[in-house]
Design a binder for these strands. Structure first.
Length: 593
DNA sequence: GTCGCTTGCCAC
DNA sequence: AAACGTGGCAAGCGAC
């Protein structure tokens, strides 16, 4: 679909407005128009819309916001088809907050979501997609603009004049590219995986509200901890420099000192250097090694987490991380600035870690955080997908799943939950989900390879369906690779594609399990929203949903959450969830009436 | 000074 | 035959 016969227009007169309106009223072969905005930057709070564009397969129109906002507003009001954006929440959010233009979400389409549903393993950026599916020449427009901006030196996205031709033509062309992309991707997605697309589009707007709601920080507490940890980080760096003459952050230099002292380094990094990670350091009984270890730990806490908590709160002491609802190839969400999905958990060998989760608190006087997480959802999905009777039975029968498995594995009906071998059973199950080999599993579980092999063998013997499932995934994927040129499988709930990359076909088993779990969470977020909790959602963490509610809502909200998250319909084993409650994320207790 | 790469580390 | 998956982020360091 090469780009011939395309005209780009810049509205700079009433006459051009008339031409634009004539174009808008034309009958066209598509039942949508595309739209796009150029902004002064990426921040919804601090930046503004500078230009608004519309387009179809043949025409692209750009108009400066300051002169023709009324025309744009009128267009969104009167056009009766759908509006297509690339990364819709960005433009829809800016049009709403910066221009007071509200576009009904059910009439919004997004070519970025289309791209991610069709090609979860590829870049969904407009330029990349357009280069492959519209016209390779299109990718050049960005370069042309960059060069033009660079040559003028001082111009930025906030200051480049709208009438500067490379700027507006680049902007108008994006709308045309988006229209072409929709013409290509739309029918494919509707034929292949409409449910996946609909799920993502619906969840988009709930997530966007979650970002605006944010998470509340106990700033005073976070600052106290930040100061104390920073003091240690600085003083220990001074001490290391004074005592050993090396920088505390320079691994090569520290390895030099420790080698002098007689220690040997055998573990290698991926790049071929000698590794100095926490495992290596932990084995070295030397004050330098121990200090480096402790310092690293506290530096991680201050720089990655606490500094965000004290520096990036708004007037209500809330942070607003970005949530990328399609941030991963498996359809898991990702978060950034900061990432609240990887806050450290309480642990014996990381004593300071507690303070991070405890910095997140309820925003209400007397309010509570409710944390609702699925019980072993990935294991349950393995049971469902493999249809293995033994595994399904282990979930349907009373008691702890891993204990049930262990009882069979060790042929010991008296096996207790406190038995240390339970952890080995758990490790072996997860190793299977991830597709680990025997050496890796042995290392993770801390057992010999012989033991690891025996455990794997026993698992295969007890649950033969799992291996059959893995084998069938492999066969389907290779079959498609041979006939269609691509190894992929489809998710059970929405028919979404999961594509093997780099020849790692074995990873598709994990993609199916992880991806299906992610889809379940998204469905449950919608259920929670429908139950009236949409305005209280704080963070999604893969198998967990955290909400912040006023004190008088706790009981109702907990019930609604559980009702939303539990599910006996979707799969052959029930999906169950549990709620815990606390004023702080880190100090939660199981919830009961 | 910025950029990109490497190393290491946090979660599910 | 060979093989743990998905992410975000900060510091150090060499290159431009």
């Amino acid at each position: 679909m090469p780009l011939t016969d395309v005209q780009l227009h810049y509205i700079d007169s009433l006459e051009e407005v008339m031409n634009f309106k004539r174009w808008l009223g034309e009958r066209r072969e598509i039942n949508f128009i595309s739209s796009d905005t150029e902004t002064s930057g990426l921040s919804l709070e601090n930046d503004r819309v500078r230009m608004i564009q519309f387009g179809d397969l043949h025409h692209g129109w750009a108009m400066a916001r300051d002169e023709w906002l009324g025309v744009a507003r009128d267009t969104f009001k009167t056009y009766e088809g759908d509006f297509v954006f690339h990364n819709a929440p960005f433009d829809v959010g800016f049009l709403r907050d910066s221009c007071q233009i509200n576009i009904p979400t059910h009439r919004v389409r997004c070519t970025m979501v289309r791209s991610k549903v069709l090609e979860p393993h590829m870049s969904a950026a407009l330029k990349q997609q357009a280069t492959r599916y519209v016209d390779a020449v299109a990718a050049g427009s960005q370069k042309k603009l960059d060069e033009a901006l660079g040559a003028r030196g001082a111009w930025t996205w906030g200051t480049v004049p709208c009438e500067f031709e490379p700027y507006w033509s680049y902007a108008a062309l994006d709308a045309v590219l988006t229209a072409h992309l929709e013409a290509h991707h739309g029918p494919l997605v509707e034929a292949e995986a409409p449910k996946a697309y609909d799920l993502e589009m619906t969840v988009y707007w709930v997530i966007e509200r979650m970002e605006r709601y944010g998470a509340h920080i106990d700033v005073k507490y976070a600052r106290e901890k930040y100061d104390a940890f920073t003091r240690y980080v600085e003083e220990s760096a001074d001490w290391i420099l004074r005592t050993y003459g090396v920088k505390a952050g320079s691994n090569a230099a520290i390895i030099g000192v420790l080698t002098e002292a007689g220690y040997r380094f055998n573990k290698m990094t991926q790049g071929g250097a000698q590794a100095l990670d926490k495992e290596v350091l932990g084995d070295i009984d030397h004050p330098l090694a121990q200090t480096v270890l402790q310092r690293r730990q506290l530096q991680k806490l201050t720089s990655t987490y606490l500094s965000h908590f004290i520096n990036e709160v708004d007037a209500s002491d809330c942070i607003h991380p970005s949530i990328n609802s399609l941030g991963t190839r498996t359809s898991r969400m990702s978060m950034s600035d900061p990432n609240l999905q990887n806050l450290p958990r309480k642990s014996e060998n990381n004593p300071g870690a507690d303070t991070i989760r405890n910095s997140i608190t309820t925003r209400y006087d007397g309010g509570r955080l409710l944390m609702c997480d699925f019980d072993q959802i990935e294991m349950r999905l393995l049971a469902h997908l493999s249809a293995d009777h033994g595994l399904i039975e282990a979930f349907r029968s009373e008691g702890d799943f891993f204990v049930n498995v262990a009882r069979q594995m060790f042929d010991d009906p008296e096996f207790k939950k406190s038995d240390p071998r339970r952890q080995l059973v758990k490790n072996s199950q997860y190793a299977q989900i991830y597709g680990a080999g025997i050496p890796k599993f042995a290392k993770t579980a801390g057992v010999t390879e012989d033991v690891a092999r025996a455990v794997f063998n026993r698992l295969h013997q007890l649950y033969p369906g799992v291996r059959k499932f893995q084998k069938s995934v492999d066969e389907v994927a290779w079959g498609r690779f041979n006939t269609e040129g691509q190894a992929y499988v489809r998710s059970p709930l929405t028919n979404r594609r999961h594509v093997a990359d780099g020849g790692k076909v074995y990873a598709l088993v994990n993609y199916l399990i992880q991806g299906t779990a992610a889809e379940v969470l998204k469905m449950k977020i919608l259920a929670a929203d429908a139950a009236g909790l949409g305005d209280y959602l704080v963070v999604p963490v893969h198998d967990e949903l955290i909400i912040d509610v006023p004190g008088d809502m706790v009981t109702d909200a907990a019930h609604a959450l559980l009702k939303s998250m539990n599910d006996t319909e979707l799969f052959s084993v029930p999906i169950t969830a549990s709620v815990s409650v606390g004023e702080r994320w880190g100090s939660k207790e199981a919830w009961s009436e």
